[in-house]
């Protein structure tokens, strides 16, 4: 039954990916003005306009371009960066892990902060702790990440003479330093997601704590940690898992800002630079990878959701 469900979701994911690919492909071509001229004027990516158009495949009909692009994508060829001259996939190969590491650290922080605070807020509903937790969550959701990131970089430099290292260290060079450089940006990137997770955990847990079976557990004289953590939390966390899928998409988009502020050479910064440099093959390639990752994560989350709660079917 679960396999059939997973297969169905997979089939739905394919048209989603195709539609996304059309959007990603069209975006660069919808920009007003002659993009090729602009790219030539600014960056001299080719020797003349004709070569530039040929390089981008713009000398053919739009349908041919799309089919050709998708054909190459299917073969794992995302084109060539105009700025570095290297295949986009090769560039992504060493940048994607940086973003995934940052995303993973952010997700860990989001869960480690959001779930426990959500539990405390639910269990101590309408107390000072609850108010503080909820206010903190609203703050976490409303403070822009780029502002928080900038403050965290600048203020310690001004007051303590310390700032995060600006040089990226590869794992092979110094494993501890490598991991350490992700902690601060990961924490900041995870804050907004932690706020969402906290609010949802609290709401869901409050709902579960009012269920009859929980009342039964209380009446049996079970200790609070056992009632909350063992009997209530598992059921309350099922919707949180779904939200995690959405949060992953948010975290991935957040890497664009945080990688730039903290000098991490990941996919987000690659995208930021590519936009600045009008490196359209890279912009297309990265957006496609991000879209594919989000679709894939949501697929996994949906399947996990069905696995966690066998009653759920669409």
């Amino acid at each position: 039954m679960l396999r059939k469900y997973a297969l169905k979701r997979l089939l739905v994911a394919i048209p989603s990916l195709l539609i996304a690919s059309v959007i990603v492909f069209s975006l660069a071509r919808l920009i007003p003005g002659d993009v090729v001229t602009l790219m030539m004027e600014e960056n001299q990516y080719a020797q003349d306009l004709a070569e530039m158009r040929a390089k981008l495949g713009l000398d053919r009909s739009i349908h041919t371009q799309y089919v050709d692009w998708m054909g190459r994508v299917a073969r794992g060829d995302l084109g060539q960066s105009l700025y570095t001259g290297k295949p986009v996939l090769r560039e992504l190969a060493w940048r994607l892990p940086v973003s995934l590491e940052l995303g993973a650290v952010a997700l860990v922080f989001a869960v480690l902060i959001g779930v426990p605070i959500g539990i405390v807020a639910a269990v101590r509903q309408d107390t000072l702790r609850d108010y503080v937790a909820r206010s903190g969550a609203i703050l976490g959701l409303s403070v822009p990440g780029f502002w928080l990131g900038t403050l965290v970089v600048v203020l310690p430099a001004i007051y303590f003479g310390w700032s995060p290292p600006i040089e990226f260290t590869a794992f092979a060079d110094d494993p501890w330093r490598h991991v350490a450089q992700f902690l601060l940006p990961g924490l900041l990137l995870g804050v907004a997601s932690a706020a969402s997770i906290m609010r949802l955990t609290r709401t869901q847990l409050l709902e579960v704590l009012r269920q009859d079976y929980v009342r039964t557990a209380w009446s049996k004289g079970l200790a609070e940690p056992r009632v909350v953590l063992k009997h209530s939390l598992k059921n309350a966390l099922i919707p949180v898992v779904t939200v995690l899928g959405i949060q992953i998409a948010q975290i991935l988009s957040g890497t664009v800002i945080f990688e730039s502020i903290f000098g991490l050479p990941g996919m987000g910064r690659f995208l930021f630079d590519a936009i600045t440099e009008r490196d359209y093959p890279v912009i297309q390639g990265i957006n496609l990878v991000i879209v594919a990752t989000v679709v894939l994560v949501n697929l996994v989350v949906d399947v996990a959701y069905a696995w966690l709660d066998p009653r759920i079917r669409y």
Partner: peptide
């Protein structure tokens, strides 16, 4: 790339 990080 970040000007604040550069100053820091």
């Amino acid at each position: 790339p970040d000007p604040a990080a550069r100053l820091a």
